[in-house]
Design a binder for these strands. Structure first.
Length: 507
RNA sequence: GGCCGGUUCGUCUAACGGUUAGGACGUCAGGUUUUCAUCCUGGUAAUAGGGGUUCGAUUCCCCUACCGGCUACCA
């Protein structure tokens, strides 16, 4: 059996969205599982759609995800270069070879002429196809005299090279996910293989490069399924059918509401990122949010993405990257598109985040408070994190859930005030202050026993005391256990917050 | 329009042709808690429709419907 070599081949036309990331992930998992090689190839044959920064964005994104490559634009390798624009000279000879063998031909029709034809057909409710039925009526090397063709070629007239699709032939594509897919050749059209600007189209370039780079499996999105028969034909005509890669066409990622392919717009519209990293469009300046900046962990992101289109026959849903590699197989990929679920993405992140070591969470929190000019010792931050870590869904929640550990509340939630602040509350709290002053040392166990005693003596419920106290300390009815908080925040600060609250609410 | 692909709870999905159709997210209800959240327990909810094949179809075949993709000198 031949060595497994797979590639991820994005085009640098913008940021890579999560559908692309998932394709990269599956390729990566397959390569690692099979002990093969994983290659990053940049398909930039469309100079018109090139977006500066997109290539670096793709590299950075996959790096953040923990998806690593053995060969590629950024790491080099035996098949360099890995950028198709730098391989430009390579492709023409193969297009030539196809012309010589009669499987392709030169075409001189202008874009305008073809557009005109398409319109004409459309007005007759027909579809124009450059193919067996029409090519003999168009301007190409099939219809023009040999000398004329040569003359035009020599004179530098713009031309393209098109494949000559055979008539009445059934083409089979064996897909690892979908099984045998068969297409009648006359339904295909004479696709352009080589453009007038001297660049190959995707179809030619991907076949040539996959062959040259000895790719064993092509794992890509379902949107390529319709052109797969064309690619099979190219392998055949180029004489490479015996080493043709195996194909696996992945189901698409769909938008959470309604239907259709997940697109850039859906994120902003529904309030979740569609990109791994934040992206600023170099032309429009438009900003798109990213999973990293929103506070997702790469492990959680990968776990979530892996399950969108792949599943074990067991109930296991939590996988580390290593476990994914171990468990992955193409035959357990599903056929149907998967709607992306932002809620489940959050659930995964919550799970991974609350399982993180406290020290790590503390370091996240440290950078957050530094940005707010707050200072705190590492020990203090760790104490805070151990109290809030289960309440955190996204990394920024760390501070959102703990800000009252760093400063007194500036406002008091009116609804809560109305509910818990009674006329005798101030005097009760003043008495509590005396108790707090007597607790020695000011620690959790002593607080618990002291306050319990106080509540018993006063013959009141714990809630009658704790709810208003919480209002003083937090400003609302939320947060970790009061006793825990008091022990961490400290006696002086607690007492001062009680006093402050009584003054403010009595105004 | 044509071609290709797809269709199991709201969502992601599991189920050698024989299961009370399972799990997870969400949701709902309880429980824990001084609050909120977490957490725990339980409930809710699905084989698109119609024909076959079969002793028996979620599973195999056909048709219909619906959804999606493709239909550029874009990838």
């Amino acid at each position: 059996m031949r060595d497994v070599r797979v590639r991820f081949a994005p085009s640098p036309t913008g940021p890579l969205h999560i559908g692309g990331v998932r394709t990269a992930l599956y390729n990566y998992l397959f390569a690692r599982k099979m002990g093969g090689k994983f290659i990053l190839r940049i398909e930039d044959t469309d100079q018109g759609r090139f977006v500066p920064g997109a290539e670096q964005y793709i590299i950075d994104s996959l790096d953040w995800c923990g998806i690593t490559f053995d060969e590629g634009v950024h790491v080099g390798g035996p098949h360099s270069p890995y950028r198709q624009s730098e391989r430009k000279e390579l492709y023409h000879q193969y297009a030539d070879q196809l012309v010589k063998s009669g499987h392709a031909y030169y075409a001189f029709d202008s874009t305008e002429e073809l557009d005109e034809l398409r319109k004409e057909y459309e007005s007759r409710k027909q579809t124009f196809q450059y193919g067996p039925a029409t090519r003999l009526g168009l301007r190409n090397s099939l219809t023009l005299p040999v000398e004329k063709v040569q003359e035009m070629l020599d004179s530098g007239v713009h031309y393209v090279i098109r494949i000559r699709i055979p008539e009445n032939e059934v083409i089979h594509v064996n897909d690892l996910i979908r099984g045998l897919v068969s297409v009648e050749s006359s339904l295909l059209d004479d696709k352009v293989l080589y453009k007038s600007d001297g660049m190959p189209t995707y179809h030619l370039a991907n076949v040539v490069d996959d062959y040259l780079m000895e790719i064993s499996h092509v794992i890509r999105g379902e949107e390529w399924l319709p052109s797969a028969p064309l690619h099979v034909l190219l392998y055949r005509y180029l004489g490479w059918e015996s080493v043709m890669p195996q194909f696996a066409h992945l189901p698409l990622l769909l938008k959470p509401d309604g239907n259709g392919k997940l697109s850039k717009r859906d994120g902003d519209r529904l309030g979740f990122p569609v990109f791994p990293l934040k992206w600023v469009d170099p032309k429009s300046g438009e900003v798109s949010s990213g999973y990293r900046e929103s506070g997702y962990l790469p492990d959680a992101f990968m776990n979530m993405l892996a399950l969108l289109g792949w599943h074990l026959d067991s109930d296991k849903e939590l996988f580390s990257m290593n476990e994914l590699v171990e468990a992955f197989s193409i035959d357990r990929c599903s056929k149907s598109g998967a709607k992306f679920d932002p809620e489940k993405a959050k659930w995964f992140n919550h799970h991974y985040l609350s399982a993180k070591p406290i020290k790590e969470l503390a370091s996240y929190l440290k950078t957050q408070i530094e940005g707010k000019n707050i200072e705190a010792s590492e020990e203090y931050l760790e104490q805070v994190c151990s109290l809030v870590h289960e309440r955190v869904v996204l990394i920024p929640d760390l501070y959102e859930q703990s800000h009252f550990f760093f400063h007194a509340p500036e406002t008091y939630d009116e609804k809560v005030v109305a509910k818990v602040w009674k006329t005798d509350t101030p005097s009760l709290l003043l008495e509590l202050i005396k108790v707090l002053q007597s607790i020695e040392p000011f620690m959790l166990v002593n607080l618990e026993s002291g306050i319990k005693q106080f509540v018993q003596d006063k013959e009141i419920g714990m809630g009658q005391l704790m709810n208003p106290l919480r209002l003083c300390v937090v400003g609302t009815s939320a947060g970790p256990g009061m006793m825990d908080m008091m022990a961490v925040i400290g006696r002086q600060e607690i007492i001062s917050r009680i006093n402050l609250c009584i003054i403010k609410l009595n105004q």
